[in-house]
């Protein structure tokens, strides 16, 4: 999959209460959760986002609560990819399970700035910064997690296991 969109930069240690505050966890609907994405960071943050835009985050993105509503709300806001310096552990699994593409890039995160136009090749984990011409290669996904991705996420993976 190739995604092209504008980068929206957020900081280090963005917690899941910032991504989707607990008061909105009375639904599992992606559109409703998407409308409140990042509401714990800044009121009405989501209004700046267009379909297929890309979130660019610092260290330990998604720390805190295990709420799967967090990746669902990002997807619901129209953001298919998050690029981060690093991810918090529970969020990392949740993202994969929900089909949100997570690319870890380490220090290269500095090459991606707010408002830059990015092109992401999700299969190759390659990011081209169309604004600056710079290129960023993400850290590869462990093979077992790639298997889950290839199956189409954890739901189809478990369905295969259950029917085997």
């Amino acid at each position: 999959m190739k995604v092209q969109g504008k980068a929206h930069v957020v900081g280090d240690h963005i917690d899941t209460d910032a991504i989707i505050p607990a008061r909105f966890l009375v639904t599992t609907d992606p559109a409703e959760l998407g409308a409140k994405c990042m509401e714990g960071l800044e009121a009405d943050w989501v209004s700046r986002v267009n379909q297929n835009d890309i979130m660019v985050a610092g260290e330990n993105f998604g720390c805190g609560s295990s709420r799967e509503h967090a990746p669902i709300s990002i997807l619901g806001a129209g953001i298919p990819v998050v690029v981060a310096k690093s991810f918090a552990r529970i969020f990392y699994r949740n993202g994969f399970n929900m089909g949100l593409v997570l690319l870890e890039v380490g220090e290269d995160i500095a090459k991606l700035r707010d408002g830059d136009q990015l092109e992401v090749d999700t299969a190759r984990g390659a990011i081209r910064n169309l604004t600056t011409g710079e290129f960023v290669q993400c850290i590869p996904v462990p093979p077992f997690m790639q298997e889950i991705l290839d199956a189409g996420g954890l739901v189809p993976y478990a369905r295969q296991r259950l029917s085997a």
Binding site: S66, R67, E68, I90, N94, G153, L154, V155
Partner: peptide, 10 residues
């Protein structure tokens, strides 16, 4: 350890 809902469903 904590996990998300879909991991828990599995």
């Amino acid at each position: 350890t904590g996990m998300g809902s879909t991991d828990i469903a599995a």
